[in-house]
Amino acid sequence: MKLVISIDVEEEGLFSGKYSRTPPGVRNVSHLDALNFVYDEFGFPLTLLTSYQVAQDDAASNMLMRLRDERGAEIGAHLHPWNTPPIEDLGPEPVRSDDMPMELLRGKMATLFEALEQRFGKPATSFRMGRWDFGKQIETLLPEFGVLVDASHAPLRYVRRGPDRFLTPSYDPYLLPAVGDLPRVTEAPLTMLPVFAPSARFTHALAKLMPTGIKESILANYSAIAAAGIQPVWYPSPSMRWAARLHRMRGGNVLIMFLHSSELMPGHSPNFTNQEAVERLIEKIRHFLSWLTQSGPIQGVTLSELYKRAD
């Protein structure tokens, strides 16, 4: 099996429920050092999906380049449209990507990808959309910007007013539909699986028959009640191990993990308010990786290294 550990490397303040065009800073990026053990102890590289605000900061960018040059990390792209130029007032943020004029969204993508290439010296070829807001317009734009692998799909999760990705295939990477003659993008969904395989489709169909409030409640609670995943912030350790076992039993070959850089900085996310909580998260990841390497052959790869597997 292959394992991707992806980090949304981004500015602070996002867990406050506000989407500022002038975020408070990117100091959390320095806390990525807490994950050095992932490479030093296990040999697994990180995929650092980087926002525009981080790319504009010298200290944060230097940190990412060190992780790339010394520990084999990949630097990819992470779009936060609410603070990536060009900026237009379209109403309360976050405005959904499919509700933006296409040329405005294309302009934001261009700003992000140009900033990353200028700062880091090579084009970004992996991508994750902020707020899991992977709509049709983003899907259409990715090949235009040279993206090989996207990781914006979180199966079995319900995003209010967002694209319905609940039934995204949750096993291994697959190819997205072609856009003209451009190379097809590989989708690498987060590893989140129904404990009882048929229950996801049944639950989704049942929820669609219900009034809006009941539908949203059913879908929003499914991932916590009836699913297992290897996401260390969303799932307890037993669920992480069970998800990896299920994935292997069902023929899966690729595991995709994610977390936010700000979750490594005490006080910048609701689940990790102090250093002790952050240290528990780090130990949880370490113990899972140790168990994973002992339970069967596993190879750490970056997101873009998955591209040829699905092509």
Rank of each mutant, 00 (worst) to 15 (best):
M109F: 15
M249V: 06
A151Q: 02
A227R: 02
Y171K: 09
G121A: 03
D150R: 01
V147D: 07
G72P: 08
K136T: 13
R165C: 12
R96K: 15
M63H: 12
W132F: 15
S239A: 15
R119C: 05
F134A: 11
M1A: 12
G135I: 10
K108Y: 09
L182N: 12
G107F: 10
T302P: 07
F166I: 11
F196M: 12
P92W: 00
V147M: 10
S170G: 15
P236N: 12
A115Y: 06
E41G: 02
P297R: 14
Q137W: 00
S304F: 00
R128S: 09
F44M: 09
I7L: 13
H247P: 00
Y19S: 00
G251E: 05
G130P: 05
V301A: 10
L141A: 07
L64S: 05
E283D: 14
P194G: 04
A73P: 04
L14C: 00
Y222T: 08
T212L: 14
R248F: 04
D89M: 03
L190F: 12
S261H: 08
N253L: 10
K136I: 09
N221L: 13
R68M: 07
D164P: 11
G130F: 06
F113S: 00
A34R: 15
L116V: 04
A73D: 04
P270I: 05
Q137Y: 00
G91Q: 01
V54P: 02
T47P: 08
P101D: 08
P101T: 09
E93S: 09
L48A: 06
E276V: 11
P169Q: 00
A207C: 05
E216W: 06
L32M: 09
D69F: 06
Y307E: 13
P143A: 01
G213R: 14
I214D: 00
D89Q: 10
P183S: 10
S61N: 05
Q299G: 01
I285V: 14
N28I: 11
R131C: 09
T168F: 02
Q53T: 14
V54D: 01
R131Y: 12
F258I: 12
D172Q: 01
Q294C: 08
T47A: 10
M210A: 14
A110V: 01
Q53W: 11
L190A: 15
N28A: 13
Q231I: 14
A243R: 03
P85N: 04
Q231S: 13
T125N: 00
T168K: 02
G162T: 11
S237N: 07
M192L: 14
F134R: 03
D172A: 01
T140S: 12
L176N: 07
P238I: 05
T47W: 06
R309N: 12
V149L: 05
V95E: 02
F37M: 06
R250A: 03
S217R: 15
G91W: 04
F113H: 13
V159I: 15
V4L: 04
F258L: 09
D89T: 07
P198K: 03
N83P: 10
L32I: 10
P189C: 06
G229V: 09
V95L: 03
N274F: 05
R245H: 11
E74C: 09
L141W: 03
S262Y: 15
A207R: 03
K215G: 01
A154T: 14
V147T: 11
Q299W: 01
D99R: 13
S304G: 03
